[in-house]
Nucleic acid binder design. Structure first.
Lengths: 196, 196
DNA sequence: AAGGTTTCAGAACGGTGAGTGAGAAATCTT
DNA sequence: AAGATTTCTCACTCACCGTTCTGAAACCTT
């Protein structure tokens, strides 16, 4: 079987993810990746076929974890506005001092490997769909006005979610996030009240 | 006076801005900047003191234009919800196929020159303040519920604004933006109706 | 027209980028 | 224990990074 690997693939990807997350694709130099992962260049190429491959692996790990986290809240039965509120409130902006890795990837359209960009887009679509599902359920249960296309309302809320991540970078604190969410959801609930 | 410059400073900055916008700070290589601006390396260093200085100049030009554009809508009298709606609807996501330069800068916290990052933060704060002002006026005129802190509501709407820019990257089209804005503003108006 | 000054064009600089190669080290098989 | 196989270490390639330098060119002053 030959000499055994001295590294744990997932741990390597996780460290690489941190570096790419923080410095971006071009900004994360190979020397930094080697140091961060503890992986030698040879094995890095054998395992990931270079920097681009490592980035894709890192993004995949991130997006899978991200979707899982969203599903934790948004797949919960019964679906409805409470799920969305819980999901929004669970966001910890302190943990993305360097932004959200998915969003960062989207903003690096032409420097990041193309498959990675496509995956970031796909992930955003996936999460958005979870929002829409819950709005649809919320409408069915009369939590929000039925006058609005659930697709549109879900997209609006996901836009807000994305915006909150940027606001974190722009200097907004944790408290700000809470009031923002409250204001947004109160609007929706009020809209429903009017309708009813 | 010596040999006259063959370049227009503002035009150079604008071309550089496009390159930085699209490729990011690390991704915009000096050779690309030289080619894009048409400026020779010597003059580039004389005029901007290197890549970092050029980036800062580019971001300054961008943020000034950005704030001006927001002011065009949000400083209009009488202030109120209509200003915000007009401002939001004016956003052209087609024009930021590579995102918003300010937002992109925020997501490059550790690769971009520090003064540039600080300026991006400051600009976001400035625009947010414009939102808040208009919400305050809207409340005074009874357009939205007075029960909510205008600060909070303004911040919420600006978060939405930021989020729309990311959604543009994630694949959302122009039509999507319109419905998103409609949904969000209807929520606010409905909230006010309930209160009244 | 000559001298001074500034920009221009492009080569040169040290450093480092991503990617590769060659031999030593560590395990498995037999 | 010896051979086969795989990873590890680390020096190496080559191209290009941001930056600087050099001399020619273009303007002003006098």
């Amino acid at each position: 079987m030959g000499r055994p690997k001295t590294y744990d693939r997932d741990a390597v990807i996780e460290r690489a993810m941190e570096a790419f997350w923080r410095f971006g694709y071009e900004g994360a130099h190979l020397s930094a990746l080697v140091e961060a992962t503890g992986l030698n260049r040879f094995s890095l190429y054998k395992e990931f076929e270079g920097k681009a491959g490592l980035f894709c692996a890192a993004l995949s790990m991130f997006t899978e974890a991200l979707v899982d986290e969203y599903r934790l809240f948004l797949d919960k039965e019964p679906k409805g506005l409470a799920n969305i509120e819980a999901s929004l409130r669970s966001l910890e902006y302190g943990s993305d001092y360097y932004g959200c890795f998915m969003i960062n990837t989207l903003t690096q359209r032409d420097t990041v490997p193309q498959p990675a960009f496509a995956q970031a887009q796909a992930t955003a679509g996936e999460i958005e769909a979870l929002y829409v599902e819950n709005i649809r359920a919320a409408q069915a249960r009369g939590e929000v006005s039925g006058a609005v296309d659930p697709e549109d309302m879900g997209k609006m809320l996901y836009s807000l979610d994305l915006g909150l991540h940027i606001k974190g970078l722009a200097g907004g604190g944790e408290a700000e996030k809470d009031t923002t969410i409250t204001v947004a959801l109160n609007g929706l609930k009020a809209g429903s009240a009017v309708k009813a």
